[in-house]
Design a protein around this nucleic acid. Structure first.
Lengths: 338, 338
DNA sequence: GTTAACGGTGCAACCGGTTGTACAATCGCA
DNA sequence: TGCGATTGTACAACCGGTTGCACCGTTAAC
């Protein structure tokens, strides 16, 4: 039943069918005010008749846009998939772009090979804009984007904001998140706090700690701050270290919900009850937070909304808008671990 | 330090710099045999000089290709991310395409809105080919692709293969996988088998069951076949149902590793030992399989390789190759649950 | 009755490449 | 010396749209 492949109808055919010129047909379909209703109607009918859809390649060349936005990702695909943060964030971007005619492309940049490919695509002007999901890692590519003048949105802060005047930035206020978590501890009357954070070189970690400190002061001594990875295993191990020190503490601030899950496991194994003996607060509000026993009090980052925002800013920049900096707000999610 | 945005150099500028015509410049850069070595050298030098990279839009229009391949996905992004099957498979596609100049685009088609957007992109000829990752769900779109004559690769079998003469197909031999799992049970001397499978309408499930049956015959009675979801919770629940029936059984064939994990948990809770009392065989060989206690014997599907294959076939079809059907082979991974 | 204003349309150029074909220059050979 | 074959290059058309500008026919104003 192989049907003969129709070769796609072009604007010229529509124009011929409607008895007008190509330019008039184009204007009619793009709803230009210079064309009479009468003619528009005729052209639209002709277009419907021959099943006309404007060719993406021709359009792209003429208007100087590909209507494609690259989402630059530094993590390898497997990590990308295992980290729910990205899923949420990418969904936000995709959702928002699906309202426009733009198409998001996930562009990986973990290996050198991939970065070179990415660079090549940038130079070819394959994309109208770039959304960089983990900008603190890909500085060479950022340099390229700057030179090429590609509208770019950075998700997350860059230390020192070297590109603030060229790129837009969207990030959650991590310091504020730290505030919220610390205030919750304080309100609960906790006075001897331990923090199990992510990697020390992560800007979000630095800001959150600053937030903790602003509220807790000496209740969170330097010695009680541990930097580690983001996973439950890391939290578990860190908690063991702390228990081994035999210091007194009644609260643990965690850099992620997964860390918190590991911390709770370690505490329970040591015979400590959460929240009776020790309060625990997480970060992120991923699925795992609600499933913890006890359910985890945590700080929610509006990831999906950040995705929406990033996509919109990218679209605006394509239209010529100036770079902007947008700060999203954190939120404390009260559950049972505090 | 905002650097003035260079407007990208065009072929015309290269030609001027090299003192040749645009056509000669184009041929020189594309290494046409009709151009003298001497001239090629000069043009290449000029191109390097002005930092020329051919513009993707212009090229696309001229050669009639966008160099973009759509990966059509029926699942919502969150599911896509939570299912390691896709991660592996998509990695395969991405890896392979990164060797070419082609760019993969993940195109979601779970909601009606998304399917309409997808259709529009197809009609605009935004993609040179489509790889459909879950073809049994998106038949309307397949119809569109067929009419438009877009080179398409289906991953997974379609019942009745209605598009066999138009589309290429890549799939793993699920019946063979069923064979392997069932043979393992048989070799171990298991005689009363239960199967906890995925959804009944999934063609892979149907084929695997056929494979089981061919080996086990009456050792796997109809009443012992349970259809459910793919997750551990589903496996757990299904096993409870079976235990409640108080029938005798000594082996469980599972539709996924996650199902198997749930099954093992339920068995253990009921005081049954794996593999002493009951043998369990999974499917997929995901990360979870090795982490099960006991480590799960399972059937491995070569997902990454399937991704490579699908990408290559897509590239071939773009070059005009006829549709092909490719069957990948399953493999039994022996561990401790049998 | 002439002319200015204006709404509607078409011509042609343009976006940035690729490619069929014509043409000029060089060479070999009769 | 004259011819055809061969090589290297340029001209121009083309891919499929968009858009600046000129032009046409009305109508309104003077």
């Amino acid at each position: 039943m192989t049907q003969p492949v129709r070769t796609a109808p072009t604007l010229a055919e529509v124009a011929a069918a409607a008895g007008v010129s190509r330019s008039t047909a184009s204007r009619a379909l793009n709803d230009s005010p210079r064309i009479s209703e009468e003619t528009k109607k005729r052209v639209r009918a002709a277009a419907k008749e021959v099943n006309f859809v404007p060719n993406a390649r021709g359009r792209a060349l003429a208007v100087g846009r590909t209507e494609i936005i690259a989402v630059l990702v530094t993590e390898p695909l497997s990590e990308l998939f295992s980290d729910p943060t990205y899923s949420e964030f990418l969904s936000g971007i995709t959702e928002e772009l699906s309202e426009s005619s733009y198409l998001p492309v996930i562009l990986q940049a973990s290996s050198t090979h991939e970065r070179n490919r990415a660079r090549e695509h940038f130079e070819r002007r394959s994309f109208d804009a770039v959304i960089d999901v983990s900008p603190y890692k890909g500085s060479e590519l950022l340099e390229v984007l700057r030179e090429l003048g590609v509208p770019t949105v950075l998700c997350g802060q860059l230390e020192g904001h070297p590109y603030r005047d060229v790129f837009s930035t969207v990030y959650s206020d991590d310091e504020e998140g730290g505030h919220f978590a610390a205030l919750a501890m304080k309100d609960r009357g906790r006075k001897d706090i331990v923090a199990v954070l992510g990697p020390q070189d992560n800007p979000a970690v630095v800001d959150r700690l600053r937030g903790y400190r602003a509220v807790l002061g000496e209740d969170l001594p330097d010695a009680n701050v541990i930097y580690t990875g983001w996973n439950s295993g890391d939290g578990y191990q860190a908690m063991h270290q702390i228990l081994a020190r035999e210091i007194a503490f009644d609260g643990v601030l965690c850099g992620s919900d997964r860390i918190a899950a590991g911390v709770i496991t370690a505490l329970n194994e040591a015979g400590l009850s959460v929240p009776a003996d020790v309060s625990v607060v997480g970060f992120d509000d991923h699925e795992i937070a609600a499933r913890c026993v006890p359910a985890l009090t945590t700080v929610r980052q509006p990831l999906r909304e950040e995705g929406h925002m990033a996509a919109n800013i990218a679209l605006d920049m394509i239209k010529g808008a100036e770079p902007t900096t947008t700060v999203m707000h954190m939120q404390l999610v009260q559950r049972d671990s505090l």
